[in-house]
């Protein structure tokens, strides 16, 4: 196998790790994006400061997106493998599921797994598995509908 395919992802992953470490060591928080997104959208019991930190992080995500758009436009796709109705269903399930399960690829997959938290390991194995099953079913059942 050509190992060079792992270089970009690994560099990206190290940056994701540095960003998450900054949140943890600087602010004593988990860089869990689904939780931060939900906290900004629907503050449930957090203080004003909590909400401002969530909003600052989200603003940073968008600023990073703008930097990529300018410096590395190839980071974004020009076409999508799925139809708009499928994207709508997908987004809803991601939003609902990450709240019910208390986290996503960042909070469970990176922050939780790296401290060997049993909940995060179970969640990560589960969502990767159902993601794989879903992709396989969509492919077998005929596509991008």
């Amino acid at each position: 196998m050509d190992l060079s395919i792992f270089v970009g992802p690994l560099v990206g992953g190290l940056l994701v790790g540095v960003a998450s470490a900054l949140m943890l060591l600087g602010l004593g928080r988990i860089a869990g994006i689904s939780g931060i997104f939900a906290g900004a959208l629907w503050p449930a019991g957090g203080s004003d400061d909590d909400r401002r930190i969530d909003l600052s992080f989200l603003a940073g995500l968008l600023a990073g997106g703008l930097v990529l758009l300018w410096a590395m436009p190839s980071a974004f796709p020009t076409e999508w493998p799925r139809s708009l109705p499928m994207m709508a269903a997908a987004g809803f399930l991601v939003g609902f599921g990450t709240r019910l399960g208390c986290g996503c690829t960042s909070g469970h997959g990176v922050c939780g797994v790296s401290r060997l938290a049993p909940r995060s390991i179970v969640a990560t194995v589960t969502f990767v598995a159902t993601g794989m099953i879903t992709v396989t079913l969509v492919r077998v059942l005929g596509g991008a509908a």
Binding site: V122, A123, T126, T130
Partner: peptide, 25 residues
């Protein structure tokens, strides 16, 4: 609850190809 949430999230991830971070960025 955790497992059911992860099941649902995974289905959504496999349907659209976006988890929350990439969707927002």
């Amino acid at each position: 609850r955790l497992v059911l949430g992860a099941v649902i999230f995974g289905v959504g991830w496999g349907l659209g190809g976006y988890c929350p971070g990439p969707s927002i960025v």
